[in-house]
Design a protein around this nucleic acid. Structure first.
Lengths: 337, 337
DNA sequence: ACCGGTCGTGCAACCGGTTGCAGTTGATAA
DNA sequence: TTATCAACTGCAACCGGTTGCACGACCGGT
């Protein structure tokens, strides 16, 4: 704050005691007499004394701050995760410092530095697409900083991970499509570099194999943006033998897919059934509301934060653990027969 | 960090110089000889020295942290604002500390305390619904803390405000509906306590008056959640003389309205045209894509942050100013004739 | 009157940097 | 040889709290 704030020294001077006494009186230390305590506490209230968190942080090396690094804050997924995290963090009297890597490796390294500089007590990370060298994270771990990765996790590192079981999520979605009589099932991937893409793809393939449906490479499309997904979906529709169902890998691709289907006046689910990995809130905006394998953004945030606090409270001596949330399959009209 | 980090004292000991010398060498102070500078900087790099931001914050009373208080992190609006803010904050080498008030006055007061304790250099706030007593903010202002209110602004306080011109936004939307031949125009409000609700309502009324259309109280409905909006819209449709256009006050209400229209198989825009205050990303998810008065979440965040930094850099001596962004009217198929 | 113990408080160091000022060194000028 | 002056470097205080330890006052017991 710009104007000088009230400090314990101010209170000490007014009351003619030492700052140690004020400090102890404020925290009800048994050494201090009741008379002194009362006087100090009254005065503190009167002057609207607020303890300086920065000073305490320096002294105790505990900042009561949790750091969060996400690739982006754009919709849809990460804002939900943040929502889940913030609730947990606030509940425990901690605060949240948020940084974006903007999918840049350099930025991510810098962000780790910033969080370290700020003495955060723990870090939650979803890594950028470009990150391959993990030394900024291994250094943190050697440094004994509590850290939990979520969603976009690094492949080879010993640490806590929180994610949803994408393989079984996609598997269940495809089986569901098969159960309603669909056989020509397409999938629209997002960024192929992401683990979630390959996991969801492999769940898709696994389900097809189980039901002896041949994999048609033409049915595997990629849309890194809504527009791209729309364009690719249009191509799908022009195939001589178009699909009768589409699995969307994200909210973004779903949005493009639905636009293409609307434009072509496709009947959903009669002509083409649709299902996707969409946040619940958004999946209900379409007509018909689309079935979804909930990516559980809020839940991931909550669980990751909980795990981080467990680490913080138990001195970070826990064995690294991977928490696999099983995703909920929510069936709506887009796949109802 | 849990393990002790490298400090300038470590470097000083190794090199056999004083910590003052190290401090100066690291910041290229002219007093220090080149030889010493090089030695220090080398060693700092080698030991991966990271300055302790907390210590600097304590010394300088500058934390390089901006505080943000929002009522909620749930979709749709505030996450967009945060996105806009974070870009600006990061760009300037600052960090963002985010707190939710959860629409609670007490929580909001507490959050202000927390931010003060953390020596944030400025605060961005969108106030809670329940906030009527503003003393926690006036105290901040008297304290000379830079502060900028956005979107949910308090009515009587001398400070910077950033908002979109809701009255003209609603006015233009309604005029647009009239221009395509609609006359029976309904509006679905959100929380009636919010200024945006009353502003948008008054823009709505103003436009109707200008075109000599009588205000029909039955056409003014309220939906604080998507479900409520859906229910109220259904009631609208059951009127003997239902509306031929609906203005949605938010993404949330739009979602409910569209569900009701889909269920009733209403033709959009032929039977009922639809327009709303929706984030661009979300307005395109509907079928047809809905026309929107962009609430400009990202833009608001950007402008509010810019104004806050202006205050910070100019020692907070600026005259309070209200920045009224004019909202963009984006016409899509939901209101095309 | 003396010793031991309790109670309440203050001193000073500490956390990790920054910075005004004084001190040391060596070279140069007188 | 000595005074003078850069050029470097170190000392110590400071930011706002916390905390181990010492100290003084007062008590009761002997």
């Amino acid at each position: 704050m710009t104007n000088k704030a009230i400090t314990i020294i101010d209170i000490a001077k007014i009351l003619g005691v030492s700052k140690s006494t004020v400090s102890r009186a404020l925290k009800d230390h048994p050494d201090i007499s009741n008379a002194t305590k009362e006087a100090v506490q009254m005065m503190a209230k009167q002057l609207k004394y607020k303890p300086n968190a920065v000073a305490m942080s320096l002294r105790h090396k505990k900042s009561k701050v949790i750091g969060l690094i996400v690739p982006t804050l754009s919709p849809f997924f990460f804002p939900s995760v943040i929502h889940g995290i913030e609730n947990e963090v606030n509940k425990r009297g901690y605060n949240l410092m948020i940084l974006q890597s903007n999918e840049s490796y350099e930025r991510e390294v810098l962000n780790v530095d910033i969080l370290q500089s700020n003495n955060v007590e723990g870090i939650l990370v979803s890594i950028s697409r470009k990150t391959e060298n993990l030394s900024h994270f291994t250094a943190l771990i050697e440094d004994n900083t509590p850290i939990v990765f979520f969603d976009r996790i690094p492949k080879s590192i010993q640490a806590d991970m929180v994610l949803v079981d994408d393989i079984s999520g996609a598997f269940n979605a495809v089986e569901h499509l098969i159960s309603i009589g669909k056989r020509k099932i397409a999938i629209c991937l997002g960024n192929p570099n992401l683990l979630i893409s390959s996991n969801r793809l492999s769940g898709y393939k696994k389900a097809l194999k189980k039901h002896s449906i041949e994999i048609n490479e033409e049915f595997i499309i990629t849309g890194q943006s809504s527009e791209e997904a729309e364009k690719e979906t249009k191509k799908l529709l022009e195939l001589t033998n178009p699909p009768d169902a589409i699995l969307a890998i994200s909210d973004l691709t779903m949005s493009g897919i639905m636009k293409a289907l609307y434009a072509a006046k496709i009947k959903i689910p009669e002509d083409i059934a649709v299902i996707g990995f969409c946040e619940d809130t958004f999946s209900q905006m379409y007509n018909p509301p689309v079935s979804t394998i909930d990516p559980m953004g809020i839940e991931i945030g909550k669980i990751a934060a909980e795990r981080l606090f467990q680490r913080i409270h138990e001195n970070n001596i826990l064995e690294p653990k991977t928490i696999n949330l099983s995703s909920r399959l929510i069936i709506r009209d887009s796949t109802k027969v």
